[in-house]
Nucleic acid binder design. Structure first.
Length: 547
RNA sequence: UGGGACGUCGCCAAGUUGGUAAGGCACGGGGUUUUGAUCCCCGCAUUCGCAGGUUCGAGUCCUGCCGUCCCAGCCA
């Protein structure tokens, strides 16, 4: 069993379902999957994405069996067309594109036969060879297959299988000036590669009858001579009779997937390029820090059916958290710093604390974090007038400093306009980590970073690009641009523990109590750390307080 | 009477030859916890787009209706 992954354009989160499905199913049944670029149209520059797509597929953790191009089969396509013509199943048509459209009829009215439909096989072959020889101008003639101009399925109204394009092809150069159409090339390519299951999206359901028709008329299994050019070229040709199977593409809420809109976002600078961490491109989600295993898990969780569906973004986030929880080492970082001074510690107090890198997996090892008298804590971890249920630091209240001990707020220092500038505390020595009093219960535990040792960092807080579930909803005269989430990207200057100053770009970690972050692949450098928030931690407190 | 496909919990999605509605996410409640994280329990469709019919029995069969999506490239 084999399936083929066909691609020729930039990869999106949405296209990954297709990739996961192809490789997933092939793997599940002990089969294999080919990677094929459908380069049947030389006027579409596909070549720029080839290397990127290969890298992306590998990044996802998949590997293809054979790497092919539809253009590898051009000679066989040609032979098959000659056979079709010889069999009286295809003809050379002189109608212009406009005329063809006119003859085709409409969705509710049947079409009319082309006046060239009854040309003799001899004349057709001659014309076809002259087309190949370059005797005719672009658009002057096409080769059409004879099926049924009255069919309710418009794909069967004598569709074109060859057109003239005096354009060089990225793989075949100027060897050809006639190029096969996708529907025609697709089924033959599948058959030639021995594909058994050819997966595609729902919109190709109407093409399946044509797919099957071509295969049946050409009858590749009984005409090995058609494969000669491929065998001569050293290609493996395990001919099969493939079945096309369609499935619905998966949509994601809070997102747009139309290429046009995505291009607009990039072109108008609404996002920072195709690999902006908010973009649903593969390069974007990678930069955002979504692990490949999470993306595979996501599509597996979403499922595959023929129903058009929109999967909730939270499912994706859940998958990302799941794999990151197990794989990301923990670190401390303060995004919105507020100074906390431990007044009962000497001015020059310094010690090195050891923390496990993972709460449940000791194989992650430990790291050291410097602790001193002055710390940065998260501003939202202190409140003068706390709402009920607040477990953090309040005036005269106690809280545990993660890995240190219990601290009591004794003084709040404000500036002239009344803003809290600093909180002063005393540390209860009996509750120091490792002491018998350490297990004394306090309502909250907060994280910190030493002001003297912490490293300043740029931290980019990414959120959903749109603030409504369906940004494509145009009702009310709005467009997707009106639904852009103004807070989808917030950049803050924060402080991270020293260990974070030396990580490599792409390294993922959890900032305890905050979320999962990844060192930015473009801008992060040692000495100038830049982190992207991949996803927040689940936060039942924020949810309870209404954010 | 153009053709094709699809309608099961807020979102996905299982549902063999008809036998009496899996699971995941989300959500609500509880427990553990030096991350209000993780983890662990418990709850969450007498109902399968609607209306009839066949049957001892229908999400599964039949009929009719309603709704949604796709198709008129010499694009893929």
């Amino acid at each position: 069993m084999c399936s083929a992954l066909r691609s020729r354009r930039r990869l999106y989160l949405f296209s990954l379902l297709y990739i996961c499905l192809n490789f997933g199913i092939a793997g599940e049944f002990g089969g294999s999957c080919n990677l094929r670029f459908d380069d049947t149209n030389p006027t579409k520059e596909d070549v720029e994405y080839v290397e990127a797509i290969k890298a992306d597929v590998r990044w996802l953790g998949f590997d293809w069996s054979e790497l092919r191009h539809a253009s590898d089969y051009f000679e066989t396509f040609y032979l098959c067309a000659e056979k079709l013509i010889g069999d009286g199943c295809a003809f050379v048509c002189d109608l212009t594109a406009d005329q063809v459209r006119e003859y085709r009829g409409t969705l509710t009215e049947p079409g009319r036969n082309s006046p060239y439909r009854e040309r003799s096989a001899r004349e057709n072959i001659d014309l076809f060879r002259r087309m190949r020889a370059g005797e005719f101008a672009d658009g002057a003639k096409t080769v059409r297959v004879k099926i049924d101009m009255a069919s309710g399925n418009i794909n069967l109204r004598d569709p074109a299988i060859y057109r003239i394009r005096h354009v060089a092809h990225q793989n075949t150069g100027d060897a050809w000036c006639i190029y096969p159409m996708y529907d025609y090339a697709h089924c033959i390519s599948d058959a030639v590669e021995g594909i058994t299951h050819s997966l595609c999206t729902l919109e190709f359901e109407d093409h399946r009858p044509l797919y099957d028709w071509c295969l049946q008329q050409i009858d590749l299994p009984n005409h090995p001579e058609l494969l000669r050019p491929l065998i001569d070229a050293g290609l493996k040709t395990p001919v099969s009779t493939p079945r096309q199977i369609e499935f619905a593409r998966g949509n994601l809420d809070y997102s747009v997937m139309s290429k046009r809109k995505l291009m607009e976002l990039v072109a108008t600078g609404l996002v920072d390029g195709w690999d902006d961490p908010r973009m649903p491109t593969l390069s974007g989600v990678r930069r955002r820090g979504f692990p490949p295993t999470a993306i595979r898990a996501f599509w597996e969780r979403a499922g595959v059916t023929k129903q058009n569906s929109t999967i909730e973004f939270s499912v994706l986030e859940g998958c990302v958290r799941e794999v990151l929880d197990a794989s990301a080492p923990r670190r401390f970082a303060v995004l919105d710093p507020l100074k906390l001074v431990i007044t009962n510690l000497p001015e020059d107090h310094a010690e090195t604390l050891t923390f496990p890198n993972h709460p449940k997996n000791e194989t992650f090892g430990t790291r050291t974090v410097p602790f001193a008298r002055e710390l940065w804590i998260e501003r939202e971890d202190f409140m003068e007038v706390p709402p009920k249920g607040f477990h953090r630091l309040v005036p005269d209240g106690e809280v545990r400093l993660r890995g240190v001990g219990i601290v009591k707020c004794t003084e709040v220092v404000k500036d002239t306009s009344g803003n809290v500038n600093e909180v002063r505390c005393t540390l209860d020595a009996d509750t120091r980590h490792g002491m018998p009093g350490a297990d004394r219960k306090v309502k909250g535990t907060i994280h910190w970073v030493s002001t003297r040792h912490a490293v300043a960092a740029e931290i980019r807080l990414y959120d959903r690009l749109f603030d409504v579930a369906d940004p494509d909803d145009d009702s009310g005269g709005k467009t997707y641009r009106d639904h852009l989430n103004p807070h989808s990207r917030r950049v803050v200057r924060g402080f991270v523990e020293p260990a974070l100053g030396e990580v490599v770009p792409g390294m993922a970690c959890q900032f305890e109590r905050i979320g999962y972050f990844v060192a930015d692949s473009h801008d992060h450098a040692s000495g100038r750390p830049v982190f992207n928030r991949t996803v927040t931690l689940r936060d039942s407190w924020a949810k309870a307080t209404g954010k």
